[in-house]
Design a protein around this nucleic acid. Structure first.
Lengths: 89, 89
DNA sequence: GCCGTATTTAGATATTTAACTAATTATACA
DNA sequence: TGTATAATTAGTTAAATATCTAAATACGGC
């Protein structure tokens, strides 16, 4: 939960997730979309991976990243629960 | 969106929101629940207020905080949209 | 008007974070 | 085998963050 919100806090990381929603991408393709060095993107991807928001697989020299949505359930549940304010039984 | 996720990133702030889900509380009541000084809590409350996650009203010497759930809609929408991965029309 | 309580503001500081450059690792291919 | 390309790791750094203490502000009641 903490790692998850930590990962979602950064605009660059949120944008990466949005990109991965459309299609799987390699680290290089993701880096291209930002005016930021490859190592910086690598750092963000690592953080997203630790939060289990993305998975990666290596194919030759390329590492392809995919969006993983299962952990998002937790955040969704947490937020929805907050929104039930005053409606607890 | 940025302020919102920034606010949700911190465990103390998330706990404050959970407390306010149950009932409105004064700054002092909130501070009591943490092993942290009042100014620190005040800092977090200010941040939550900027993110529009809480509102406050002053009654005498006391400042009472309430949970505000409307901005949570945005985060919910954003997360749900991510979860529609691969299901875009 | 003075005292006590609730809260916030100001200022200082240690830690965390996000960025960079340089170096390393891994792979493809000529 | 050696060179180019993809990506990550290491090391550095500036800025942001969360905490503290001390001081200021705002009220209520005597």
């Amino acid at each position: 939960m903490n790692l998850l919100f930590k990962a979602l806090r950064d605009p660059t990381r949120r944008r990466i997730l949005e990109m991965l929603k459309e299609r799987d991408l390699t680290a290089g393709q993701i880096a291209e979309a930002f005016s930021m060095t490859a190592p910086s993107i690598s750092y963000h991807l690592d953080l997203l991976r630790h939060a289990q928001l993305v998975s990666s697989r290596k194919k030759g020299q390329f590492v392809t990243y995919s969006l993983e949505t299962t952990v998002l359930d937790d955040s969704l549940g947490w937020i929805l629960d907050l929104m039930k304010k005053g409606k607890r039984k």
